[in-house]
């Protein structure tokens, strides 16, 4: 099964998708949807989406989580992989969900659509979390989850902590604006309108992919990567992490030779594949990598 991971990174999502479709639960059929003060605090929460898993987990109400998505335990893509093993995981089929009897389901905008439609028909509360492609959307997502959980105070706390750290990092960013290129398995890069691109820019870089004419799939061929000579190459997981012929671009000796003489940094994809406060770990690494490069250290 293909995990729909790259769809997060490559897709621009308009703010219009911020459709908190909170349907009334059983106890308040005529209540105003989405109003936290009237909604009871959900006790059996299910997340169907990798990014929602991590946001939900960040709130720290473990006992109220009934299940997380199956991706939450994948260390390549989830920062909570270790901890997520404590929870039940679901693939998102309607059958699983009916059995769990959740009182709140958090889903992403694209996957598990049929399940979500069915849950809504059954009158379950469903929060569809838009993909956070920038910091503003990231904050708004934290707020929506907080509202759905009936914990707006905790949400505000998380947002304040995020902004504090953001401010601290911003002071370390120089005005130089080096050019960076993200280079993943199968020559995938990160184009404009992704959280990765936002993090790169915040960390003081220009994203080369925004300046080049790229294919709609967002791929950057090896020879173009080497031709543009980026100031920093940002790699994701190592070629040996997945056994696939598509990682041959990362095994290519031309890349290996090039990296020996040029600056690069490895950012684990789990740090910034989702718009959660953890993206600042990626930002910190990126800032640090540039500091090292300007000091003359080799990576």
């Amino acid at each position: 099964m293909m995990k729909k991971i790259y769809s997060f990174g490559c897709t621009t999502v308009s703010a219009a998708l911020l459709c908190t479709s909170l349907t009334a639960g059983s106890g308040q059929a005529h209540g105003e949807p989405g109003r936290s003060e009237t909604a009871p605090r959900p006790q059996r929460i299910v997340s169907l989406n990798l990014c929602a898993d991590q946001l939900l987990h960040a709130f720290g109400f473990d006992s109220r989580i009934a299940a997380l998505s199956y991706l939450s335990t994948d260390p390549q893509y989830s920062v909570i992989a270790e901890d997520a093993r404590k929870f039940r995981t679901v693939r998102g089929s309607a059958e699983e969900l009916v059995a769990i009897q959740p009182d709140l389901v958090i889903a992403g905008p694209y996957t598990t659509k049929t399940t979500v439609a069915m849950l809504q028909r059954l009158g379950k509360r469903v929060l569809i979390l838009p993909i956070a492609t920038n910091f503003a959307q990231l904050r708004s997502n934290i707020a929506s989850v907080g509202e759905a959980l009936g914990e707006p105070g905790r949400a505000a706390e998380l947002i304040r902590a995020f902004d504090r750290r953001l401010l601290g990092l911003k002071r370390r960013v120089t005005g130089k604006r080096p050019r960076a290129a993200v280079y993943y398995t199968n020559s995938v890069t990160q184009i404009a309108g992704s959280i990765e691109s936002e993090v790169l820019k915040f960390s003081g870089y220009r994203n080369i992919a925004e300046e080049l004419r790229l294919s709609p799939r967002g791929t950057l061929e090896l020879e173009r990567l080497l031709q543009v000579v980026p100031d920093m190459i940002v790699l994701g997981h190592r070629p040996e992490d997945y056994k696939t012929v598509l990682a041959d671009n990362l095994r290519h000796p031309a890349l290996g030779n090039y990296l020996r003489n040029h600056a690069w940094v490895a950012i684990e994809e789990r740090l910034w594949i989702c718009g959660t406060p953890v993206v600042l770990d990626a930002a910190e690494k990126l800032i640090h990598a540039w500091e090292k490069t300007t000091r003359g250290d080799r990576p």
Binding site: T185, N186, Y242, L246
Partner: peptide, 9 residues
């Protein structure tokens, strides 16, 4: 193989 690139591969 449970790898995210299966379809592309």
């Amino acid at each position: 193989s449970d790898n995210p690139f299966a379809l592309t591969e």
